[in-house]
């Protein structure tokens, strides 16, 4: 096992009869925070069950924290904290005893479990509300209690399934900050499955993107986005001439009407663009760096490719709907 990775799979496949839920996944998830992304039915839940050692894989191999997913499921679940997406709390119990019980189910001594339950509930911000029955909790408090249940034994890896789902702005902010704090201060690894790209982007350094049971993309978010850094310009007049000039100068240009995106490959690119515009007599009304958001990447993968992404050039191969501007008639040449 390579200690560099918290989760590692080699050609991992899972089939239910003829339906292939996971197909030859080769995933390496480093320590730290990782977002698990994918549309409904992409195989996220199956993947989570697989790495928790709950279902037998059809072929391939996988290790979580160095434990084999085939044979060491119980050990994996002892060292991993899982926060389910759906309600997983008994509404008739109070928060403190619910979290304590979750610790006891891991094999914690009842006294130790109670002490840890207090600590973890304090950490997730439940405070004195811990003595209230869970049925009276808000959605945010329930999410926080589920997180407390997951981290009571201070696991090395926390798997959080839609942790900020259904939360109001304040609770969402708190949840995201809490997860970040666990990674930064607690030095724990977090795997976060979410549809809220913004939250994933704020918590995670890496992403794993699944689509139809296959690996669509994996790696550092920054790396994926950095490849696609472009300069976006809004042109008034002679856009075609400018495009041709930029192409002849060796730039990679994508154009949608009067909006162009030029791949940023040097620090002096802005000067060169302005010079080219001056030479052909075109006005640059707006010039700024364009960096694809995680959501852009996600949508592009899902809509354009689906899987087997080689680089993020592939992801953004099709023109993205660009903002159109109204230019004076005399300048509408290009």
């Amino acid at each position: 096992m390579n200690s560099e990775f918290v989760i590692q799979t080699q050609d991992l496949s899972k089939a239910y009869g003829t339906h292939v839920a996971l197909e030859k996944l080769n995933i390496q998830i480093p320590y730290g925070a990782t977002g698990l992304l994918g549309q409904n039915g992409a195989g996220k839940s199956t993947f989570l069950k697989t790495i928790l050692g709950l279902i037998q894989i059809s072929s391939g191999e996988g290790q979580v924290l160095g434990y084999d997913v085939r044979t060491q499921g119980e050990l994996i679940r002892s060292h991993v904290g899982y926060m389910p997406e759906y309600d997983a709390l008994n509404p008739g119990m109070d928060g403190i005893h619910q979290v304590k019980y979750s610790g006891e189910l891991l094999g914690m001594n009842p006294i130790v479990a109670m002490q840890r339950a207090h600590e973890t509930l304090q950490f997730v911000g439940i405070g004195e509300q811990r003595y209230r029955e869970i049925e009276s909790y808000s959605t945010g408090m329930k999410q926080a209690t589920k997180l407390a249940c997951a981290i009571i034994h201070d696991p090395k890896l926390v798997i959080a399934d839609e942790p900020s789902n259904g939360l109001d702005a304040y609770s969402r902010e708190f949840m995201v900050n809490t997860l970040r704090l666990m990674v930064k201060e607690g030095e724990r690894s977090v795997m976060m499955a979410s549809h809220l790209m913004e939250d994933v982007e704020r918590v995670c350094d890496n992403i794993v993107l699944l689509h139809k049971g296959k690996l669509a993309a994996q790696g550092k978010i920054e790396d994926l986005k950095a490849i696609d850094k472009e300069i976006e310009i809004h042109v008034w007049g002679k856009a075609t001439q400018l495009e041709e000039r930029l192409l002849s100068d060796g730039f990679k240009v994508r154009r949608e009407g009067r909006v162009m995106r030029i791949t940023q490959d040097s620090d002096s690119i802005a000067t060169e663009i302005l010079q080219a515009a001056a030479d052909v007599g075109s006005q640059i009304r707006r010039l700024h760096e364009y960096e694809a958001s995680l959501e852009d990447l996600f949508v592009a993968i899902m809509e354009n490719l689906g899987y087997n992404v080689k680089s993020s050039d592939d992801l953004l191969g099709n023109p993205i709907a660009a903002r159109r501007v109204d230019a004076p008639e005399e300048l509408k040449e290009g």
């Binding site: 006891e104 189910l105 001594n109 009571i152 201070d154 704090l181 201060e185 607690g186």
Partner: peptide
């Protein structure tokens, strides 16, 4: 007064019988 600090835990988990006893006791 709320100060969000992550407190690590270094204890050990008891074996299977303790987990089963927890379910029974519950």
């Amino acid at each position: 007064i709320f100060n969000q600090d992550y407190k690590p835990w270094t204890g050990t988990l008891n074996p299977r019988w303790m987990r089963n006893w927890a379910i029974l006791r519950h």
